[in-house]
Write a protein that binds this DNA or RNA. Sequence first.
DNA 1: AAGTGCAATGTTACAGGGTAACGTCATGCC
DNA 2: GGCATGACGTTACCCTGTAACATTGCACTT
Lengths: 181, 181
Amino acid sequence: MPDRAPVAAPVPAGDPAAAFARHDHARCAATAREVTARACAERGLRLTEIRARVLAILCESHAALGAYDVLDRLREDGRKAQPPVAYRALDFLVVNGFAHRIERLNAYIACGHPGDDHAPAFMICRSCRRVAECAAPAAAAALSPQAAAMGFEIERVVVEAEGVCPDCRASARETGGETGA
Amino acid sequence: MPDRAPVAAPVPAGDPAAAFARHDHARCAATAREVTARACAERGLRLTEIRARVLAILCESHAALGAYDVLDRLREDGRKAQPPVAYRALDFLVVNGFAHRIERLNAYIACGHPGDDHAPAFMICRSCRRVAECAAPAAAAALSPQAAAMGFEIERVVVEAEGVCPDCRASARETGGETGA
DNA sequence: AAGTGCAATGTTACAGGGTAACGTCATGCC
DNA sequence: GGCATGACGTTACCCTGTAACATTGCACTT
Ligand SMILES: [Zn+2]
Ligand SMILES: [Zn+2]
Ligand SMILES: [Zn+2]
Ligand SMILES: [Zn+2]
């Protein structure tokens, strides 16, 4: 499902709420690609053609894409790509903080703050698969005391909220039915 | 990897830290099964033979088991079970709050507070796959303001911390090497 | 220029996780 | 008996992910 009209911009493109609100998505996507390219240049990382293409595919919308969705898109370009091609590019983007894996969906999204070192939390719409990336250091921090108490060393925290986005709630209300697609 | 010696009980069996500490696991497992059985009786849920068996399998250790691990165990009983048999039993347990799915691992554990309505967070050892279930309402609550601000309706929050448990940290130190198995 | 090393990509083949769909069977109710 | 319901049995898939190895291209050495 495509995002809503990417014309007006009542919400700035970097805002977490952008995923579920009207915003200038062309600018949103272009910024993400440019910032990532710059970060790669600064850090000596090679943003190869395939990697850049996969990032562009993820940037096309705020919906999470499965690795095989990405693979299909690569094949539409005329490549005869096999699964490892998609997975390797996705791994590169995730490891370097330019994309995120959504565990709940086994899927991927472009990062909203590429290059920055951040502790993201995600709001996942179970109806349209769009995902908003929020900063929620408090959520992860809440676990530290308990981890320390039991001697557990935390390396990474996954925080994913599943629910229904404003658009899909509105759609459900119109049809009077459930919140499904 | 089996749990450590289930003899002494420096930690009470219901404690979140039990997953990574010496405790009376026989008692720990028996309690989980009994509480679940009682909750089913009270609520008119049918804890059938297969469901009870799957719960017992999950209760055998604090390590997360994949659906196919559970299936293999069912087959060892002499059943000729197919995947849906395991998935249906696991779904029953998860939906009714007697087990949890660990998204990060695509795997399952028995619930530490079966029947109670709770907002669990998990500490997952990436080395031995054991999982501690903690109560961390603060982690989920930290997302509410942002969700409200963007009109997102949260239905469920996944909080999973990945890291290394005390035992595996100790093992790594002994061998001077990395924290792998 | 030839040789060497490394990172990225191409390709095959498979393992692991999950479900739709349909048939069967037992239970309980009218 | 007739019927609805919920659980289980079975088949046949689809989606997700990776090990392993061949190849390419580029940078750096000699
Ligand atoms: Zn956007
Ligand atoms: Zn939505
Ligand atoms: Zn135990
Ligand atoms: Zn461990």
